[in-house]
Simulated assay, not measured.
Amino acid sequence: MTNIILSAIVAVSENQVIGADNGLPWRLSNDLKWFKKTTMGKPIIMGRKTFQSLPGLLPGRTSIVISRDPDFTAEGAIITHSLESALEIGNETAKQMKTNEVVIIGGAEIFHQCLDQLDRIYLTRVHATIDGDTFFPDFNTSEWREISNEFHPKSEKDMYDHNFIVLEREQAL
């Protein structure tokens, strides 16, 4: 069996904002489509607040939710209490789903905890400085190489210009 790739998908403003008031601080229809296409058929790992910010379970994906609250439940989602446990469940679920990728979808604390373990980042760079209260952690860009970079202009459905960038961790020699 191929190794399971651990990825993160995130939209980040020029000043590293990823959220405001437990939601997205922009409207980017294009990014939502890219998110769906990128995560479809894969297990997705998220924190409780991220899960609660969604409209519900995302179809075609297995939701693994990390919560410190031992009483937290969410019908249809797998609840766990640590990143390590979520990653183990994600790897097993990926094999069952016949995919080689597990995708972290947020929030900031989960991104921070798993940054050193990521193999790939699907980064939507939002070309704007945004007011927000949630930030993507700094990471050493020299450890990553750009696999693809696609520009999209703002439009009626997209508030800002943005790029879809795929980064893969440089393998140590």
Score class of each variant (00 low, 15 high):
1 M>I: 09
8 A>E: 11
9 I>Y: 07
10 V>I: 12
13 S>C: 01
14 E>G: 07
14 E>S: 12
19 G>S: 11
20 A>V: 14
20 A>L: 14
23 G>Y: 05
23 G>S: 15
25 P>C: 03
29 S>N: 13
32 L>Y: 03
35 F>A: 10
37 K>L: 11
45 I>M: 04
50 T>P: 04
54 L>Y: 09
57 L>G: 04
60 G>S: 08
61 R>G: 09
65 V>K: 04
70 P>E: 00
71 D>E: 09
71 D>Y: 00
75 E>A: 14
78 I>F: 01
81 H>V: 04
82 S>N: 09
83 L>G: 15
84 E>T: 12
87 L>A: 00
87 L>C: 05
89 I>R: 01
89 I>T: 04
89 I>C: 00
91 N>T: 06
93 T>F: 00
95 K>D: 02
96 Q>T: 13
97 M>W: 01
97 M>R: 02
98 K>G: 08
100 N>K: 07
102 V>M: 11
102 V>Q: 08
102 V>T: 15
104 I>T: 01
105 I>D: 07
105 I>P: 05
109 E>A: 15
111 F>T: 00
114 C>R: 06
115 L>V: 04
115 L>Q: 11
115 L>S: 06
117 Q>M: 15
118 L>A: 05
119 D>S: 11
122 Y>M: 03
123 L>G: 01
123 L>S: 04
131 D>T: 15
138 D>Y: 15
140 N>T: 04
144 W>H: 06
145 R>Y: 14
146 E>H: 02
146 E>D: 02
150 E>W: 09
152 H>N: 15
161 D>W: 06
162 H>Q: 14
164 F>I: 10
167 L>K: 02
169 R>K: 11
171 Q>D: 10
172 A>Q: 14
